[in-house]
Simulated assay, not measured.
Amino acid sequence: MNERTIVAISAGLGQPSSTRLLADRLTEATTAELASRNVGARVETIELRGIAHEIVNAMLTGFPTGSLREALDTMTAADGLVLVSPLFTTTYSGLFKSFIDVIDKDSLTGMPVLLGATGGTARHSLALEYSMRPLLTYLRADVVPTSVFAATDDWSGEVDTVNPLPARIRRAGKELADRVAERPADGAAGLYDDVPSFDQMLRGI
C-alpha cells in the first residue's frame, strides 16, 4: 500500500494558535477518510511563524534557503495540501501571502488543496472565496469545493445541530481525500533541488 503525504501549512501567529488547531482538524478529517479506504497517509505540518525571517529573505534575494527551502520541497512533494491562514482586515495574513509569493508559480499546478481560515467573527467568512480561492486558482492548484472558516465561537461546541463546523470539516476532508486518492503516489522531486544558495551565488559557485 503506497502511503500518501498530506502537508498542512499554518500561517497562525500565536502559540497556541486557532489557525494551527483548524489545520490539525482538517488533516485529521482527511487522513481518517483515506484510512476508511485503506489508503495510508502521513501528515507534515509547517508553521510559517517559524520560518518568517527566511520568507522575508527570499522575497529580498529571490532565492529560498535553509528551513524555507526544506518547507518548499516538502510542500511541492506532497499528495495534498491544507492551507490555513488567519484573516486580518478581511483577507489572508501578510505572512501567508509572503509565503505564497516565494513559491514557484508552477509548483502547485494540479495539486489538491483544501483552504481554511480563522477569524473573530463569521462576518469575514467569505474572504476564503473572494481572496484565498482566487489566489490558489491563479497558481492552477486543484482547490476542493468546500473551504472551512472557523470563528472564535465555533470552537465552543461540537454538536452538529448547534455548530456546523465539525460537519464542514468532515466534508472538506472527504473532498481532499477524494482528490488525493486519485493521484499517483509517486511523489514529486523537490523543485528547488538545483537552486544554488545565496552564499554559493556570492562565491560564484
Rank of each mutant, 00 (worst) to 15 (best):
E3D: 10
E3P: 00
R4F: 02
R4K: 13
T5V: 14
V7D: 03
I9M: 06
S10H: 02
G12Q: 05
G12K: 00
L13T: 15
Q15L: 12
P16L: 10
S18N: 14
L21F: 08
A23K: 02
D24R: 12
R25K: 11
L26C: 04
T27M: 05
E28Q: 12
E33D: 13
L34G: 01
S36C: 01
S36K: 06
R37F: 00
N38H: 03
N38A: 08
N38C: 00
V39H: 02
A41I: 02
R42K: 05
R42S: 08
E44T: 13
I46P: 00
R49N: 07
I51T: 04
H53D: 15
E54Q: 12
E54N: 10
I55F: 03
N57L: 10
A58G: 10
G62R: 09
P64D: 11
P64N: 10
T65C: 12
G66H: 11
G66I: 10
L68Q: 08
R69Q: 14
R69V: 08
A71I: 11
L72F: 05
D73T: 13
A77L: 03
D79N: 14
G80V: 08
V84F: 01
L87K: 01
T90E: 08
Y92P: 03
S93R: 07
S93L: 05
S93P: 06
L95Q: 05
K97R: 08
S98L: 09
S98N: 14
I103E: 12
K105P: 04
D106A: 14
T109F: 06
M111C: 05
P112I: 07
L114C: 09
L115G: 05
A117R: 01
G119C: 08
G120S: 14
G120M: 11
R123A: 15
L126F: 09
L126P: 06
L128F: 07
E129V: 13
S131E: 14
P134K: 11
L135C: 15
T137A: 15
L139C: 11
L139D: 11
R140F: 08
A141D: 09
V144Y: 01
P145H: 12
F149V: 09
F149M: 09
A150W: 02
A150Y: 02
A151F: 07
A151I: 11
A151W: 06
A151S: 15
D153H: 13
D153F: 10
D153G: 13
D153C: 10
D154G: 12
S156I: 12
S156A: 15
G157Y: 06
G157N: 15
V159Y: 07
V159W: 05
T161P: 03
T161D: 15
V162Q: 15
V162M: 12
N163Y: 11
N163M: 14
L165Y: 04
L165M: 13
R168D: 11
E175A: 11
A177K: 03
D178T: 10
D178C: 06
A185T: 03
A185K: 00
A185V: 02
D186T: 11
G187Q: 05
A189F: 00
G190W: 01
D193H: 00
D193C: 00
P196L: 04
F198M: 09
Q200S: 12
M201A: 07
L202E: 07
R203E: 14
G204K: 03
I205D: 13
